[in-house]
């Protein structure tokens, strides 16, 4: 009951927020929050569910942003189609990076993903004919039929949060599905999972594609919303940003990632007077969080809400129940 009422309350808050917060600047902050939240949730699929620590997710976020930007600006493709294309592109990029990266373990995996993202950044920087290089690519504001001038932010808001809510619903179902359980099994003990027949490589491979695609979708919304993108979007800073949100909020909880994105985009707005200090403050918070709360700020709460209750057999069966 508590869970359902919390979910309904959250949906209600999301639905009415643009009517309550009418200040255009804060509406923009909310959209950015939603985009970062999608990015963080995408990363959490790998980090939290699978225990695969990608250090190069900026490649997918930035890659999606560039594909969307180039299609809309240079080829005049519609926003909707560009979103789909960017998502597919990032998913394919995910598969491509997964092929070398998944053969590595631990730090080698981290370094490989980091370097793959650097290769993508180098390519984007060095083909100015297509991407405008370091000058940055301007992206047009999409036209939404039937939407009066000045309400584009609200449309972006609802698109972003619809995707976020959908992703949360799917992942919440996925988490307790047999396939979701095998994700957790791989995270907890890869050898053991393989020994009981979980196709470890294949699952990781597909998860990389899904996570990359979702991150690319976040980037694809980001590009026309911000209006200008530069190769900085592919730099390790953005990969780190995603990780910071997931780690501060809590691995594998979905909501932890969203909370991390909230911290990053909305809470740090209070330091707006010192915009340059934002990354310093946030990386400082991250350092402290890793040392003192390595499981994330929100993890205890999410675990409390997800505890298996008598009525709900969807939760993990405890040893006592099984006996």
């Amino acid at each position: 009951m508590l869970r359902i009422s919390l979910a309904l309350a959250a949906l209600l808050v999301i639905a009415v927020a643009p009517f309550v917060v009418t200040d255009p600047y804060f509406q923009q902050v909310m959209v950015i929050f939603g985009i970062y939240a999608i990015f963080a949730v995408a990363l959490d699929i790998l980090f939290g569910f699978l225990g695969v620590h990608s250090f190069g997710h900026a490649a997918f976020f930035g890659g999606g942003a560039y594909v969307c930007g180039i299609l809309m600006e240079t080829y005049g493709v519609s926003f909707g189609l560009a979103l789909v294309a960017a998502t597919l592109f990032s998913a394919v990029l995910g598969f491509l990076i997964a092929i070398p990266a998944l053969r590595m373990r631990g730090i080698y995996f981290a370094i490989t993903t980091l370097f793959c993202a650097e290769v993508v950044r180098l390519v984007v920087t060095n083909v100015p004919d297509v991407t405008r290089g370091v000058m940055g690519l301007t992206t047009p504001m999409p036209s939404f039929p039937g939407v009066p001038y000045g309400y584009e932010t609200a449309v972006f808001y609802y698109i972003t949060f619809a995707i976020l809510v959908l992703a949360c619903l799917l992942l919440e179902r996925f988490r307790v599905s047999p396939l979701g359980r095998s994700f957790i099994a791989i995270r907890e003990n890869e050898q053991l999972a393989a020994s009981v027949g979980v196709p470890v490589f294949r699952i990781k491979f597909y998860a990389f594609g899904v996570s990359g695609g979702l991150a690319g979708l976040a980037g694809a919304i980001y590009a026309p919303f911000i209006g200008i993108i530069s190769p900085d979007l592919l730099s390790p800073t953005y990969s780190a940003m995603g990780m910071l949100m997931v780690v501060v909020g809590g691995f594998g909880t979905i909501y932890g990632a969203i909370f991390g994105a909230f911290m990053f985009s909305v809470v740090t707005e209070f330091f707006r007077a010192a915009a340059e200090l934002r990354m310093i403050i946030f990386s400082g918070i991250l350092i402290v969080a890793i040392i003192f709360m390595p499981r994330g700020v929100l993890t205890p709460l999410v675990e409390y809400l997800r505890r298996p209750s008598g009525k709900d057999k969807a939760g993990l069966v405890t040893r006592d129940e099984a006996a």
Partner: peptide
């Protein structure tokens, strides 16, 4: 954790 902390340090 050390991987993440040094990554955060580099940004800091």
């Amino acid at each position: 954790n050390t991987l993440l902390v040094t990554f955060a340090l580099s940004l800091f």
